[in-house]
């Protein structure tokens, strides 16, 4: 019988192997190239279009707010690309028959798959922010990069983890890759924002527990406590997410859905 230390080291090694395999798979399937190109191309639109046809916003905060209001979209696209088929793919394509028969713990496989989906998504978001920061420095100078910009970056990273957890959760409970990917994509892009807007404007209740509502913090940090509304539409709302409860909601979504997904996937059997 192995000692606890050896057991832990083996689990870490196995998880790293799964992560490395997942990253290679994403690279082979050209998902990384596509999402990295999007991460560079999307912010470039906000630079090139005003450069040719219009003028840049007066302040660096204005430019960052405009540009980063679309980082949500990139998080949703990359999250769906990398996590949409992470678990369900093994069951649908029956590759799990080979994978699950290895002496590796099932939980380490799924944790590895989660990390394998999370890391490239975080890199994509970081590239988006890096491209935007280069643009800001080019237009407004180094002083255009404020503390709020870094705050927005870290909030975007936290939101990325919760978005990946949600899509990963769908991947662990559904039977088909396409259903899981589409449900993950549309729940973050449409379903949750619709529920959020109905609660805000019709029921007039603050939807603080809706994940996409908290995502409004990514751009709200640039305007301070004055609400400008959140979500991909940037609609003016009567509520604005509280900074600390918004962060707590994102962390709660990440961890609860992650553990649920790993637990359900570990208990799931090949049909």
């Amino acid at each position: 019988m192995k000692s606890i230390k050896e057991d832990m080291m083996e689990d870490i090694k196995n998880t790293c192997l799964t992560v490395s395999f997942e990253l290679k798979r994403h690279f082979r399937m050209k998902r990384m190239i596509i999402s990295f190109l999007l991460a560079i191309g999307l912010p470039l639109i906000f630079y090139i279009v005003p450069l040719i046809w219009a003028s840049f916003p007066d302040t660096a905060e204005g430019f960052a707010t405009l540009n980063l209001s679309f980082v949500n979209l990139l998080i949703i696209i990359s999250g769906s690309l990398f996590a949409g088929d992470a678990v369900v793919g093994e069951f649908e394509e029956k590759t799990g028959l080979l994978l699950f028969s290895t002496p590796q713990r099932h939980s380490t496989i799924f944790v590895g798959k989660y990390i394998g989906a999370l890391l490239p998504t975080l890199v994509v978001v970081s590239i988006y922010y890096l491209t935007t920061s280069i643009e800001i420095i080019g237009i407004y100078g180094v002083e255009g990069i404020t503390l709020e910009y870094f705050k927005s970056f870290f909030i975007a990273l936290v939101y990325t983890t919760s978005a990946v957890s949600l899509i990963f959760f769908f991947s662990s409970i559904l039977k088909r890759k396409i259903t899981s990917t589409l449900l993950g994509f549309f729940s973050l892009l449409m379903i949750l924002p619709i529920i959020e807007n109905v609660l805000q404007f019709l029921v007039e209740v603050e939807p603080w527990y809706i994940l996409t509502y908290s995502a409004g913090l990514i751009t709200n940090v640039f305007v301070g406590t004055t609400p400008i509304g959140g979500g991909p539409g940037g609609q003016m709302g009567q509520f604005s997410p509280d900074f600390y409860s918004g962060l707590t909601v994102m962390v709660a979504y990440t961890l609860i859905l992650f553990f649920l997904a790993v637990f359900i996937a570990s208990k799931r059997r090949m049909e």
């Binding site: 705050k151 936290v158 940090v221 301070g224 406590t225 900074f243």
Partner: peptide
Amino acid sequence: PEPLGDIYSPILAI
């Protein structure tokens, strides 16, 4: 505007 939150909380969260 009054700054919204602080930088440490999102870093600690991640």
